[in-house]
Design a protein around this nucleic acid. Structure first.
Length: 429
RNA sequence: GUGGCUGUAGCUCAGUUGGUUAGAGCAUCAGAUUGUGGUUCUGAGGGUCGCGGGUUCAAAUCCCGUCAGUCACCCCA
């Protein structure tokens, strides 16, 4: 079968699926407004060098997951994540010099060339925030609180925020030595991946999922115990704030994060209902990034929500806003025969002009068939036009959801009547 | 990139140890004394059984390949 299909790892969002996406975006947007974050939109693709510089050419994303396009001597990449583009825009427009501290949110598709699986695709949607230009520990807490409130606004239940601190560059240098010293004699017992991680990124050995590795991880030194007092105090301060706001926190030494630019607070939101891939949000502080990208030494903190897994979680939890919805026009004008077709179109348009979503028949269906299909599409009000109605300047109005019939005049009052019928809900008998 | 599972109608699936014109439910469309929905009844359309090759008198069924989907690993939202 050689039918055309959308490329592997992509999905068509059909009309009935979009209300779910809208629900998540709208809840996020509302939350951002109340916290004073403003939306920013950057291009879908950037110069490849931007991501190489921010993520590091050692990272998996850069080394094997980028959607890149070479055109003449320019090489661009469809954005695999949202942080680097926002920081780039911030610096490009000299915001660091005019109003250094700014809070942004963004949302939209991201692209990574990887093997699709449950809750993960090659084009996926992220909603994220970036609070740029401040080192304040208060912001660390605010950002986590913000993620929590956003999920709450979406109606998600049963999730936990896993938090950890990985200190600053100095803490990490120290801890790297401590970890290497600990793992060196145990290296024989570790899996192949950990053998590689020992040199490349020791920290990742801490969240290895292989059972034999987890055994030696239990007694492994923890970041939190090797932070300098100032770093440790800052983490404790953040935790205290979050506990005061009843955020479901779990301190989890296994949270290490993949990208190089993270510092101090790192966190992940997980929803156990999802099974193997349970992370729905990841973020933290990344104090080195702005400077790394050619800007001044300013702090930054943010997170990104994976919309796809979030929708999956809401679906599993049977959230009503996620169910597929047929969003057809609520009013339908049904001409009985061909002679009423023009009048029907005119009436239909008249209601549309009044802001009432309205549709009519285009296929010369029988009246019965029009009723049947209208019922299936969730139409609430049917307006029937036959020869008699047209001649008398009247229309038959049937409220399908109420089971009521009315005869109404085709005058300026009609729209108001229809509007009223739409607003009426069926009362229990 | 690695591994497991799965490909039969628009959807969910039957299809007996290989054996005639491949079935059901739902969905779609049309009817049930000719201007009215949801229930019910009747009927219709719709499939080169993912694709290619092989074994056989005979393949949806067995074998090989390939493509696609899916789940998991690596990594990550």
């Amino acid at each position: 079968m050689s039918r055309m299909m959308c490329p592997r790892g992509t999905d068509d969002l059909l009309p009935e699926a979009l209300p779910a996406l809208d629900h998540v975006f709208a809840a996020f947007h509302r939350t951002m407004d109340t916290f004073g974050y403003r939306e920013i939109r950057t291009p879908m693709f950037e110069e490849t060098a931007l991501f190489v510089r921010s993520l590091g050419d050692e990272s998996d994303v850069v080394s094997k997951e980028m959607f890149s396009v070479q055109r003449g001597d320019t090489n661009v990449t469809f954005r695999p994540e949202g942080t680097a583009p926002v920081v780039r825009a911030y610096l490009q427009h000299n915001l660091d010099k005019t109003r250094a501290f700014q809070k942004f949110w963004y949302g939209g598709p991201m692209f990574r060339f990887e093997r699709p699986q449950a809750g993960r695709s090659r084009q996926f949607y992220q909603l994220g925030v970036e609070a740029l230009g401040s080192h304040s520990p208060l912001l660390d807490s605010e950002v986590v609180l913000l993620a929590h409130r956003a999920f709450a606004a979406m109606g998600l239940r049963n999730y936990r925020v896993h938090c950890n601190s990985i200190g600053d560059a100095e803490d990490r240098t120290t801890f790297r030595l401590v970890l290497r010293a600990y793992f060196q004699p145990l290296l024989q017992q570790r899996c192949d991946d950990c053998q590689r991680r020992f040199e490349r990124n020791v920290f990742r050995m801490l969240d290895c999922k292989v059972p034999q590795c987890q055994a030696t991880n239990k007694a492994a030194p923890q970041f939190l115990d090797h932070l300098r007092p100032a770093s440790r105090a800052r983490f404790d301060e953040s935790l205290a704030v979050l506990q005061a706001f009843d955020v479901p926190i779990i301190v989890d030494p296994g949270i290490v994060r993949g990208f190089d630019y993270y510092t101090h607070l790192v966190f992940e939101v997980r929803c156990p209902d999802l099974g193997a891939r349970d992370a729905i949000c990841g973020g933290g502080r990344y104090d080195g990034l702005i400077e790394q990208m050619g800007g001044p030494s300013l702090g930054a903190v943010g997170f990104a929500i994976g919309v796809t897994p979030t929708l999956l979680a809401l679906e599993i939890q049977k959230h009503p806003a996620i169910a597929p919805r047929e969003n057809f026009a609520a009013v339908f004008v049904a001409p009985i025969g061909d002679s009423e077709r023009t009048a029907a179109l005119r009436l239909c348009q008249q209601l549309r002009d009044q802001g009432i979503p309205c549709d009519t028949d285009y296929e010369q269906k029988s009246l019965k068939a029009q009723f049947k299909s209208a019922d299936k599409r969730g139409v609430k009000v049917m307006l029937v036009l036959g020869p008699d109605e047209v001649q008398n300047g009247r229309v038959q109005v049937r409220a399908l959801h109420l089971g009521q019939d009315h005869q109404l005049a085709l005058d300026s009052e009609l729209a108001a009547h229809v509007r009223q019928l739409l607003a009426t809900t069926k009362t229990a008998p």
